[in-house]
Amino acid sequence: MIVLSQMLDFCGIEKERLRARWVSSAEAPEFVEEINDFVDILKKLGPSPLGKEQVEAVA
């Protein structure tokens, strides 16, 4: 994680797009909170600049 997130940053990809957290199956509220939080961040960042259409347009 430590290495990969810095590598994404090095390649100019928002490192916030990568996220890992251990949540036990007994911790439903934590899971919901985590996902909601991640979704909010992703909405702010917008679609990935590496989606199929964008890449094909350049290739």
Binding site: F10, C11, G12, E14, P49, L50, V55, V58, A59
Partner: peptide, 19 residues
């Protein structure tokens, strides 16, 4: 040197390279 470029410059640089 590579890091002295901005985030978006790095993005287009590497994308171009990887393509």
């Amino acid at each position: 040197n590579a890091e002295s470029n901005s985030h978006s410059e790095r993005f287009s640089y590497w994308k171009g390279q990887f393509l």
